[in-house]
Design a protein around this nucleic acid. Sequence first.
DNA 1: ATTAGCGTGGAAAGCGTATTCCCGCTGACT
DNA 2: AGTCAGCGGGAATACGCTTTCCACGCTAAT
Lengths: 336, 336
Amino acid sequence: MAVRLAEVAEAAGVSQATASRVLNGSNRRPAPEVADKVRAAAERLGYVPNAQAQALVRASARLIGLVVHDIADPYFSSIARGAQRGLAGSGIQLMLASTERAAEAEVEAVRSFMSYRTDAILLAGSRGFGDDVLLERLLQAYRGNGGRVAMIGQPLASAGGVQIDNEGSAAALADELLRLGHRRFAVLSGEPELQTASQRAAGFLATLKSAGVMPEVVSQGAFTREGGYRMMVDLLASGVSGEERKLCVFCVNDVMALGALAALREAGLSVPEDVALAGFDDIPTLADQYPTISTVRLPLEEIGRMSVEMMLGNSDASHRVVVEGAVVLRQSTRLS
Amino acid sequence: MAVRLAEVAEAAGVSQATASRVLNGSNRRPAPEVADKVRAAAERLGYVPNAQAQALVRASARLIGLVVHDIADPYFSSIARGAQRGLAGSGIQLMLASTERAAEAEVEAVRSFMSYRTDAILLAGSRGFGDDVLLERLLQAYRGNGGRVAMIGQPLASAGGVQIDNEGSAAALADELLRLGHRRFAVLSGEPELQTASQRAAGFLATLKSAGVMPEVVSQGAFTREGGYRMMVDLLASGVSGEERKLCVFCVNDVMALGALAALREAGLSVPEDVALAGFDDIPTLADQYPTISTVRLPLEEIGRMSVEMMLGNSDASHRVVVEGAVVLRQSTRLS
DNA sequence: ATTAGCGTGGAAAGCGTATTCCCGCTGACT
DNA sequence: AGTCAGCGGGAATACGCTTTCCACGCTAAT
């Protein structure tokens, strides 16, 4: 269909081998005048190499796969952006899969990436395993065949990746909120099988406990804006907020906090006057919120960039980095 | 490296041809007991087909390419999400390129997608052509080889895609704002070579003109949040807002409006009390803004979905759809 | 009873490229 | 002058798969 290397070679009056050597830069470099002829012919015919054929014969497909839950979620799109940046200029392309939080879709995506022989697979925000033996086995096979796997946010036995200190960072946030003088807390968490959500809730609660503070409410819902909204609606309906002392609500991620905020507004309550609110991630979207929202800053783009760089570099395949979040107190948790 | 079809065939005691027929579902379906043997062997060995090899021999690589300016921008990530949704279950994978608004990167991305023999290329928010003969020629060649091209947002001669009625929608917005009673306007537009920005500004201005209203300011900057911020800072510095009648600022997209809003807040001005503000796109992020922001709603996700469906379906390759935006008036443009 | 027709599995030919040999040549060193 | 390393180009193989094309055994129709 398209122009093949053989046609270029013929047009240039050289062999296919020579044309190949000129156009892809092997370690053997043909004579300058020959090279020019080949390049001219390629240009004239509009030759575009067939990456599939190259991948078949080369070791690498020059492809990297990124699995996210929802590319429209700022958390993931920031990571994706970082990944793209990390890839810039490397000649490696990104394949994207958005699982919509379905475990089967995640497995499907990984299988597909394996099928395309991607050099590496980045799993962002995956639920931990546990029951998901299938995925684990798949990745094991992938790594056995030379593929590299990076978990973003969650550690995976014997795989590299960027790990996030969810517990520690959430604990630090709780510390700061206590220091501000907050004493009444609610924690809105995500699905229990989501390690990210559980760890954040656990870290937060552990610090409260060691300070002798009992949370008023701990609820679990969806790890999404909608989930935050729902849980806040329920929280308000339960009447827990109408007390003398202000309630401080910790949502285990920012989009949930935004959902919760929407519910508060609909109920005619203001932040931070009536209720204090904190999130986690510091997604870019938060920059445009008013009141400004307290959160734990994660260098999301950096995390994406680091992940691909770890995959690209020929460092130890199971290299790991742990990222700490930075507590950022803003208006939404002001006490008075 | 990985398990090959030949090994599966051998393990199952059949020929490679038979194994292939069983595992990928050709139009010839081997006998049930043979098929079971093959499937069992494939399962046991952990066979994953090599998509590169399949692509090489098949007509299609089962790949589709999406080019966006910035995947972290909600406008593009919404489109990407829609595209993913449209692809769901089709077995076709998405390759993503984020150009960071650089024309060379766009060309590079297209060339790369051509190299991977993607079945279609979706160009979202591309600057129109004009000077960009290179890109145009590239796409021409691609289409000549059976590739399909969809422009999202901008029409391309003889290519299909989803077109957005920027001018008409912006004109409708201006109409509504005039009807509300606004008379003093500022238009913050994007780079002049970006057709999307120019068309929106033009549609808006044309309606003002036919109503006999002269805009106070028309400025051009970056088509980004930062651009909106900068232009609003300049606008405020020029002192144009301190008049008896409220100024209504139209930003040609929502992220610019958010940037402008940030600048207003920093200057201690409120929306809509001191200045009215309107954007364009209705990105999901806008749902969490307070005050709520007037805009023109574009069904972004739907646009992404439609685009891939047009590419997938074997309808006329140059089929086009024009999407109208819906004016949504919210708090940010209230007059009193 | 013979043959046309059909269904089923296998051998083999590519798909487009990188790369390994191989071969002829030149230039340098003995 | 003879030999040999080194270099530059070409023929051919391999990458993993799909898909003709074939051969073969069976049923159904004349």
